[in-house]
Amino acid sequence: MASKSIIEILGRGYGEFKGKYYFKNNECSGFISSVWFAAGEGFKDQDMKVNSKIYEINNAQALKEIEEDRLAEKDKRQECSYITNEIDVFDNQRVIRTKFDVISENLAIQLYTKGSKKKLVFGASLELGCASPHKTNRSKVMVMLENGDVITFYHSSKLDCGEFELWGNVSNSEIIRLKKSPIKAIKLTGTDYYDTIEEFEWPTYFIDQLKCFNPR
């Protein structure tokens, strides 16, 4: 292309041509870098319009991907992830154990059942002391729902002074209550300390997962 030729800029390049502009005239077409030409009158305004359009396209794509990820995570949370779901050959009772699901930064919950007995297992990475079943110093978890209902679970397994893991019996009536509203707060009390959690990654855990006590 001859020196001082007049060309028309038709668009901006993408991918490997990012930062260059597409041109075409009677002789040829291609991509040219902005440092190789002097912008004519009106180019700056047009370039700003192109930038604005690119931002709108990229922003729309980003929002679409965020929404797709949100829907995929929502679908995943409706699934039941069983570690154990089988009949015990010795007593002919079904044993169900789900994987631990993280519902906040320091708390995960697992469902466990054998026969008609159902338990919620709260595993916390917090300094609380032991999980104790003794009446004089019994560990407990209090679950407050957004509707104001509070359900308390007491440790029903052996004394555990490792990582805090509380096994609480849960009745069918408590399951119905837990499924009525998202979690607002959970207070965990060990033999030495207690802690209250108010920020949750999965506040609808009970609503989504308690159906897993009864596999189809």
Rank of each mutant, 00 (worst) to 15 (best):
L126G: 03
L159W: 15
F164S: 01
T152S: 10
K118I: 04
G123E: 10
K180D: 11
I151S: 10
K179I: 12
N169W: 08
V143P: 02
G115N: 06
F164G: 03
D149K: 15
D149Q: 15
R177M: 10
D160I: 02
G115E: 05
K114W: 05
H134W: 13
N147E: 07
I151N: 06
K140E: 09
E127C: 04
G123P: 00
C161Y: 02
G162H: 04
G148D: 07
L166T: 00
P133Q: 09
A124W: 01
S156I: 03
F122G: 00
G115S: 05
H155S: 01
L128H: 08
D149N: 15
A124M: 01
L178T: 05
S116M: 08
S125K: 13
K117C: 03
E165D: 11
E146K: 15
F122P: 01
P133A: 09
P133G: 09
F122L: 04
K118M: 15
G123N: 10
E165M: 13
V150Q: 14
S171A: 12
D160H: 10
S132D: 11
Y154L: 14
C161W: 07
K179E: 14
S157L: 10
I151E: 09
N172Y: 10
H134T: 10
F164T: 01
G129M: 09
K158L: 10
S171L: 07
E163R: 09
L145G: 00
L128M: 14
V121D: 00
Y154V: 08
S125R: 11
N147L: 07
